[in-house]
């Protein structure tokens, strides 16, 4: 089993280590804007434990996924905002 594999974040390819959550992978990739608040401000993870819903992104086409509760899988497609 490979310890590293690729995922796609907003159409670009990044290498991540097995066991990394999507939230950590996004932050490592320099993403700061995970989704927009109703008023349009950028938002990013706050609680890191699936409570605050600030890390919501689209994962493999599914809206509203919690990036901090989802572990990266090979070939995963993540879209922010």
């Amino acid at each position: 089993m490979d310890e590293r594999f690729e995922i796609r974040i907003d159409g670009r390819t990044y290498e991540v280590e097995r066991g990394t959550t999507v939230a950590a992978a996004l932050l490592n990739a320099g993403v700061t804007r995970f989704h927009d608040a109703p008023g349009g401000e950028p938002r990013a993870p706050l609680c890191g434990m699936g409570i605050c819903f600030e890390c919501m992104v689209r994962i493999n086409g599914e809206e509203g996924c919690l990036a901090c509760q989802t572990v990266c899988r090979r070939g995963m497609e993540v879209v922010t905002r």
Binding site: V16, E17, G19, T20, T21, A23, A24, A25, L27, N28, T32, R33, F34, A37, E41, P42, R43, A44, P45, L46, C47, G48, M49, C52, C68, V71
Partner: peptide, 26 residues
């Protein structure tokens, strides 16, 4: 969490949240 000016900015994370993120690969 207690609100203060700018607490919604990306980069402001819970202390335990930061711990969880680091432990999960940050």
């Amino acid at each position: 969490f207690l609100p203060f000016a700018g607490w919604t900015l990306p980069g402001v994370v819970g202390a335990g949240g930061l711990q969880a993120l680091v432990k999960s690969g940050l």
